[in-house]
């Protein structure tokens, strides 16, 4: 019931959306495709949900070939496209009913699977879908994608544009679904969501930069990272850029993340340099890398 992707490539006109992508998703896994807009995530989703045909390579979903067995796949996957794709002029209940009937089932029949989610939107069941908040829309869309008990769930950027509270709830829901033996492939541009997946593929420009468990990706970060802060952020950026020891220096919220070309670099070295540049309130601390640090290091 997993997913297998072998050497998939796809181009639109001159743009190479996917460039020789290969990976496996194990049955029951929560697998994340992490990358910014234009990384090729949506194209990959459409190939796997049988909506597009790849130029090269092959892929199977739950053992079925995405080109030849497209009918079988359409019966057993749930798909939530990137933008909100429900009928805005239908109520919550009508939407759900509609998707249940086209899959030849009823809400009652599969209620146990969607119960968790549906109780949260049930108070609004007579409201038109177009009038729901972002978080509610996304829960309704997920309910609709689950209504026929799919074996594999494809979620294309389900949390984009959704507030932090709803995002958190959504991920909690995914974790629970995973326990019901549903394989989940989810994409997101938010690096901080990577940690919630079993394994992730960091994607950019149609290629996979790295594929592993999130902790493993962080552990494989090749350098020591220092977070740096002084009283003047803008001058700090400029000064770190011209520092001869600098390997990378990126703004990271209220700090800068700094890595050096020397492996035995110490915080004191940097403090000394910044003092020389007349910075005040200097703060330099070694810190743990994040997925975002890995992503930037890999795509550098």
């Amino acid at each position: 019931m997993g997913i297998s992707v072998k050497h998939i490539s796809k181009s639109y006109d001159k743009v190479r959306a996917l460039d020789d992508i290969s990976f496996e998703v194990k049955p029951g896994e929560l697998f994340g495709l992490i990358g910014p807009d234009g990384a090729g995530k949506t194209t990959l989703f459409r190939i796997l949900t049988t909506l597009l045909i790849a130029d090269k390579g092959e892929a199977t979903v739950a053992g079925y070939d995405v080109v030849n067995d497209y009918k079988a796949i359409r019966n057993l996957v749930g798909y939530m496209p990137g933008r909100f794709s429900l009928y805005q002029d239908l109520t919550v209940e009508e939407n759900l009913n509609f998707f249940a009937t086209i899959f030849g089932t009823t809400i009652e029949e599969n209620y146990d699977l969607i119960k968790d989610i549906y109780v949260q939107i049930e108070p609004f069941k007579n409201r038109r879908a177009g009038k729901l908040s972002g978080g509610m829309k996304q829960k309704l869309a997920l309910s609709c994608a689950l209504i026929h008990k799919p074996k594999v769930l494809f979620l294309d950027e389900p949390t984009t544009g959704v507030d932090p509270v709803s995002r958190k709830e959504f991920w909690e829901i995914l974790k629970r679904l995973q326990q019901k033996d549903i394989t989940i492939l989810v994409s997101t541009p938010y690096m901080d969501e990577a940690a919630l997946c079993d394994r992730i593929a960091l994607m950019t420009g149609g290629q996979i930069l790295q594929l592993s468990a999130p902790e493993a990706i962080i552990a494989s970060f090749p350098k020591k990272i220092f977070k740096v802060r002084t009283a003047e952020t803008y001058r700090l950026i400029q000064d770190l850029k011209v520092f001869t020891q600098t390997h990378s220096a990126y703004p990271f919220g209220e700090y800068m993340h700094f890595t050096s070309m020397e492996s035995d670099f110490k915080a004191e070295d940097l403090i000394r340099y910044l003092k020389g540049k007349k910075h005040k309130n200097i703060e330099v601390l070694e810190t743990e890398p994040t997925i975002e640090d890995s992503f930037m290091e890999l795509s550098k």
């Binding site: 909506l51 933008r83 086209i102």
Partner: peptide, 13 residues
């Protein structure tokens, strides 16, 4: 336009 065609296509209809 709304993207619902995508969902209809990925269904047994």
């Amino acid at each position: 336009e709304l993207g619902t065609m995508e969902i209809l296509l990925v269904s047994p209809l």
